[in-house]
Design a protein around this nucleic acid. Structure first.
Lengths: 185, 185
DNA sequence: TCGTAAAAGCAAATTCTTTGCATTAATAGG
DNA sequence: CCTATTAATGCAAAGAATTTGCTTTTACGA
């Protein structure tokens, strides 16, 4: 439903999208989720509700669109000296960000949308970050597990626990990393 | 918002809940998600919409409530002879059910709801199933990994991939089980 | 049996969503 | 540079969903 892909940078569509996204971010910051409505967003963004309905379909899709945008990592993983240290540092930060209030909300928004594309993009971002760590380790001449292994044994457990209950503690995250680094067959 | 916990079996509340749940299940089977509305459910269930709004708050919560009900396992894990075989059998079935169309929808409904209690319950069901397998293995005198380890290394990867993109293939599930059974330190 | 409290029904008021049509803005071709 | 074409937005009315105050029903305990 979203048309982001074929937008010229300065066109009208791009401006509308930008102001709607901005309005959503601001409203989400000051109101509770249940109070954020499309007419409200439209008012703040300076567009008509029908524009939003036509472009995004419903609130869920719009929120997912905004959320996936905010979940895009804004920097490379920190270089902590070794592959293991890099992964540990990254995983702890990931767990913390994703289990925070806003983090949880964004994940929920992405998963709640009908279109699966946003969720895919989300795990793709994660995969890319780990890829950077893996490449860096290989450049150093270190052994490093396969990226998919890291997704399965580190990322998935963290995300599962965030979604289905508790917040993963730092110690647990460290354990996951230690395990994947030690069984590198 | 739900009041399921303090319901007498034959009371009016229980009857309303039962007929609403039934109406939801039937409507979900014949219509697409976007076409299922509270007034429609209310009509089919023979109650007024305001009853549903007051008891569940909104459609999302109602759907989550119905979904978690349907996700409750209706039988013990199959006994396949050994802990590893039990786990393999169970995990394959779990992956298949959860990645099916209705399975995905139910998971999404549970996760999309504001109240986290339903999601918790969901992973609790899974944990109990694995517990049964683990106890059975121990009764046979076999070694079996810690239940939390199985959650991290088998359940979480399966669920992560279902939620964030692909369907986990049978071969992959078998790999996950093999790995957790082999590194039982 | 009766009184009480919680839940459900009803209906009006409000708010959100959809839709047809008019208008505006961006793009390609002359 | 101008103009035709197409896509997106604005506007407003119609339709649908949600909220709410009040009344009625139902289950339970005294």
């Amino acid at each position: 439903m979203t048309v982001k892909e074929n937008l010229r940078p300065g066109g009208r569509s791009a401006r509308v999208q930008a102001s709607v996204h901005k309005a959503v971010r601001e409203l989400m910051a000051e109101l509770s989720r249940a109070d954020v409505t499309i007419p409200l967003i439209a008012g703040k963004a300076g567009v008509t509700p029908s524009t939003i309905y036509r472009r995004w379909g419903d609130l869920q899709e719009l929120l997912a669109d905004v959320a996936v945008d905010r979940l895009r990592p804004d920097m490379q993983p920190i270089d902590a000296g070794s592959g293991k240290a890099d992964l540990e540092t990254w995983a702890e930060q990931y767990a913390e960000e994703m289990s925070s209030g806003p983090g949880r909300e964004m994940i929920r928004d992405v998963l709640a949308a009908q279109a699966g594309a946003n969720a895919c993009k989300c795990s793709e971002y994660t995969r890319q970050q780990i890829d950077v760590i893996a490449e860096r380790a290989k450049a150093r001449g270190e052994a490093f597990p396969d990226v998919e292994r890291v997704m399965d044994q580190v990322v998935a457990p963290i995300m599962y626990r965030i979604l289905f209950g508790d917040v993963p503690a730092t110690a647990r995250v460290r354990d996951l990393v230690a395990r994947v680094m030690s069984t590198m067959d």
